[in-house]
């Protein structure tokens, strides 16, 4: 590896360590990255000079010498996240420390193609180009999970000839900033599974939507299922004719439509109980839209699971509603930030 590449990798490691912990002192960075303190000191000086990092003030004093915490410079620039759903398009602007600077709903309806492209550019022009707003560094397009990015292709026309290009490519061409595409599904799953890995616990993540996808982590390690990281339980749920207690089959059902597989609490509880017999699950995280994952549905599922487990210790159940998009935008902004700062 060339010296230039080694230096570049070390820079990436330093920034990565700071992003992971929000703020670290030089010595903590050295511990975290296994680099020598002098190397870290040199790299950090360069990163401060280039405006990537700032000293946030004394953080702790040890052996008579204070450690100055370093964090990413929130004024380095801004990150835009466009949440694209079937009901609205929302643009949020974050600083590099992931604080939300501003937001605007670009459309209260479904928008696609060149209309959406124009809406986003107008939104960016209104928000990001405002006086005093930091320079736009990157953008994330956060699609609703049942959408396909190709729905949003933009027609690039010269008047005589034309071509269809992805929305992200069109935005990149126009704004000259990295544009990444993500799906709300990925974030919900990523957040749930990441927490299980960090806590070294065993658990399952089940997403309720057009498919019912399950992923399992045992003692912090993801279990490789037959179809990869996720298994689709929809065929199992739809074809299931048994339940823990036939009399208890409840009317509280996620109705079947294009966006959802029909799910009854009983069937869902039965599937979870099967997972519990196969894996030592401490927790099960469900995600789905708030309008379908109602309080009654949740209560019915929890009750059914206790019945299915027949007195055995039930795992902790957690329900993530997908309409709270703010945190998902921040997660998307974090991904964009990592792409920019680490050139992933």
């Amino acid at each position: 590896m060339r010296l230039k590449d080694i230096k570049k990798n070390n820079r990436i490691n330093v920034i990565s360590a700071i992003l992971k912990h929000d703020a670290l002192s030089r010595i903590e960075i050295a511990h975290e990255t296994n680099l020598s303190p002098s190397t870290v000191s040199g790299l950090v000086s360069g990163l401060i000079d280039e405006g990537y990092l700032v000293e946030t003030g004394a953080r702790a004093a040890t052996a008579g010498r204070s450690r100055v915490a370093l964090a990413v410079n929130k004024d380095l620039g801004s990150i835009a996240v466009v949440e694209i759903s079937r009901t609205q398009v929302r643009l949020a602007l974050f600083d590099v420390a992931l604080g939300e600077l501003d937001s605007v709903v670009l459309s209260h309806d479904y928008a696609s193609g060149n209309d959406l492209f124009a809406l986003i550019l107008a939104g960016i022009s209104a928000l990001a180009n405002k006086e005093g707003q930091p320079k736009l560094l990157g953008m994330g397009l956060l699609f609703q999970r049942d959408m396909d990015a190709s729905e949003f292709n933009v027609m690039y026309s010269t008047g005589i000839s034309s071509a269809n290009i992805p929305l992200a490519t069109a935005l990149f061409t126009q704004l000259r900033i990295p544009v990444i595409e993500e799906y709300t599904q990925d974030y919900t799953a990523a957040r749930a599974l990441e927490r299980m890995k960090e806590d070294q616990t065993s658990g399952a993540y089940i997403s309720l939507g057009a498919d019912v996808l399950a992923s399992v982590v045992v003692k912090g390690a993801p279990v490789h299922l037959k179809s990869g990281a996720f298994a689709n339980l929809a065929p199992l749920l739809e074809g299931m004719s048994v339940s823990c207690d036939a009399d208890a089959e409840t009317a509280e059902v996620i109705p079947h439509d294009a966006a959802h597989v029909s799910v009854t609490p009983e069937r869902l509880a039965y599937v979870v109980s099967v997972l519990c017999t196969l894996f030592p699950l401490d927790m099960v995280v469900f995600s789905g839209p708030q309008e379908t994952m109602t309080e009654r549905f949740i209560a019915a599922t929890e009750g059914a699971l206790h019945r299915c487990l027949n007195g055995a210790q039930a795992p902790w159940l957690e329900w993530l509603h997908l309409n709270g998009s703010g945190s998902l935008s921040a997660t998307c902004a974090d991904h964009v930030r990592r792409t920019i700062l680490l050139q992933e």
Binding site: Y156, S157, T158, G159, I160, S161, S162, A163, T173
Partner: peptide
């Protein structure tokens, strides 16, 4: 040909 999409894109870029 300046009416080709690739020419226009390259020039703009």
């Amino acid at each position: 040909d300046p009416t080709n999409t690739q020419n226009v894109w390259t020039a703009n870029f």
